[in-house]
Amino acid sequence: MPNTYYLILLAMLLCITALAGCLYLLKKSMGIIIKEPAKDVPVEAGSLPQKPAWVRFHVHYYGFALLFLAFDMEMAFMYPWAVVYKELGITALIDMGVFLMILFLGLLYTWSQGGLKRQ
């Protein structure tokens, strides 16, 4: 029964959350945090951080991220295809072959434009 399965999974999730919540409560009941200077400052190799870490940050792999976002969609089509693959035989192989070739062209284009280099 699919519905029971989802309920079991939901119950598992709730159990884990409840367990973690119990641990948090236990921890909270076990003592207080003593305030000391520079205790609540994030680690930064010896020196105190001058400014917050939440600033503009150049993520060097954004090209890969874009490529991945598009390439990732292939699996939405691939899983249902894989289920019926044996049944349909050669037709399915050719269909998916064409589809993957099209996607692979995109990968090759990005490769040729230097998108797969270390930035």
């Binding site: 994030p42 680690v43 930064e44 870490a53 940050f57 993520v59 792999y61 890969f64």
Partner: peptide
Amino acid sequence: PNGVYSMIGGWRFLAQLI
């Protein structure tokens, strides 16, 4: 945590996922 080291670790793991 708003710390530099941990944030870099987090973004690196996203790269690893990609």
